[in-house]
Amino acid sequence: MSEIINILIVGVGGQGTILASKVLAGVVQEKGHEVKIAEIHGMSQRGGSVFTQVRYGANIASPTIPQGEADIILAFEKLEALRWLSYLKKNGRILINDQRIDPMPVIMGTVEYPADALQIIQDKCQNVTMIDGVSEALKAGNIKSVNMVLLGVLSKFLDFDGDIWLKVMQETIPAKFIDVNLKAFEAGRKY
């Protein structure tokens, strides 16, 4: 990987991408890297497409990842994976939660959800990892912990010790929910 690592997290508003990126940012900072994060708040939270762009390394100018430069895309939803695919480096890795969330135009039947989304992605990238995040989250005890399952999978491809992840999670997540989230993260890490 080059001197800047670019990680793009994409999903649907309400899926918990923001917490996942918060933990990731915490881990990156813990290791003393220079970091820039781009995110959009506001209308996009209401069930629309959401993204967080995390860049770390040295001499980072733009807070957004230029198209075609993401080392890893972590997609919480299949259609969003396809939407952001052009941001991936050719030899980059894409981690996809095997979940389909229909956008309103699909729910209404005005357009179709692309049935071949995964096929298109697989044709264009060599490093595709599919994750059954929902099952793993249910096993961990709460369907809402999908975000930590996915973060656990992402952690396998990044050069940070497991202890740092746990430390940051404990600092970031309210005590009430920490056990389920740690369990979900571990499940992802072993996935």
Partner: peptide, 23 residues
Amino acid sequence: EVENTVDNNEAASAIPIRPPVLC
């Protein structure tokens, strides 16, 4: 020019938009 990008223009045009909705 940028090298090494994943060309997704063709598929991108057919991706349904995901507008925000009432929660």
